[in-house]
Design a protein around this nucleic acid. Structure first.
Lengths: 171, 171
DNA sequence: AAAGATTGACTGTTCAATCTTC
DNA sequence: GAAGATTGAACAGTCAATCTTT
């Protein structure tokens, strides 16, 4: 088959997208590590747990919500367990399942970290964009994720859980 | 200072952007490793070298074009040197500088890998987007990179180097 | 002293293999 | 045997320290 090479417009877009994808994770990690001794992935774990009613999620569900593989998540949870940010416990109804629970100090850590992180997200990504561009970006990421994430876990509209106003924010 | 939490629109966009940024690198790596025994970063190194007249770049310049830190690049180049994809040589004019040169077999590897990679980029990112969205995405990534990449190396419009038609494509 | 680059130790990720429960 | 999860080894990235040349 003939290869359809990228034209100038496509190439320009692609080159920048690659740069953004390469640089953004490091920028998120830096701020969180410096200010809260957390990686961005660890922050996501805490945030996802905090958004459930009982501050609990099984490994598979947590992996889906953090876009992670199970082995990766398992290693991270082990480290976080040593730091007492989360706890593991076997599910009473299904012996194969492990449930992860947010601890008091895990929640406290999240609550402390959230404002700085949100500030960083605004500075790096949201502030440079117009309201219109934010809308465009949602549609664009949605389209790309439909290819990238066959499970479609992240393609459905994200719903903030119905919790108390004081609940720690996702981002 | 009062934290300005994300509203639903902002949160939805942000959640998806995070998912995309998390999933895309893995998807690029998988295809290239499977079909060409190359990481996406190694592919970028080969591509950037191939686009210069003499197939050569100093470490600092190569690091800028691949969005990498110097230590990271140095490690990667060491591995690629063992596989004879590139060569290191001291700059004759400035003893501090190391120049990296693409080898014959490095170029051959790139030429073989390029079609599959471009195909993958189309499938995962470009095809799901309309022409209009591709234009929007360029402006969006440009705006974000202006914050993320102070050097502005990637913010300027990307120019394909003036080379022979048969030259291996960047992406 | 600054610029360019490298090194080594540490941390984190990936992959295949494994284990247990259903 | 499939689902849920964990483990260990191999691999890649990060950070601080170092080295050389200017």
């Amino acid at each position: 088959m003939e290869t359809r090479w990228l034209d100038d417009d496509e190439l320009n877009t692609w080159v920048r997208l690659v740069a953004m994808v390469e640089l953004l994770p490091g920028a998120l990690d830096s701020q969180l590590r410096r200010d809260s001794a957390l990686s961005h992935f660890e922050y996501l774990v805490l945030a996802m747990l905090s958004e459930t009613d009982d501050h609990m999620l099984r490994m598979t569900a947590l992996a889906a919500r953090t876009n992670a593989t199970l082995p990766r998540l398992s290693h991270v949870i082990s480290r976080m367990e040593r730091r007492e940010l989360v706890e593991r416990r076997p599910c009473p109804y299904d012996g194969r399942v492990t449930e992860v629970r947010l601890t008091e100090s895990g929640l406290a850590t999240l609550v402390e970290a959230a404002p700085g992180h949100v500030e960083n997200v605004r500075t790096l990504v949201l502030d440079p964009l117009s309201a219109e561009q934010i809308t465009q970006l949602r549609a664009i990421t949605e389209a790309v994720l439909s290819r990238l994430d066959p499970s479609g876990a992240m393609t459905a509209p994200y719903r903030r859980p119905a919790v108390e106003p004081a609940a720690p924010p996702h981002a």
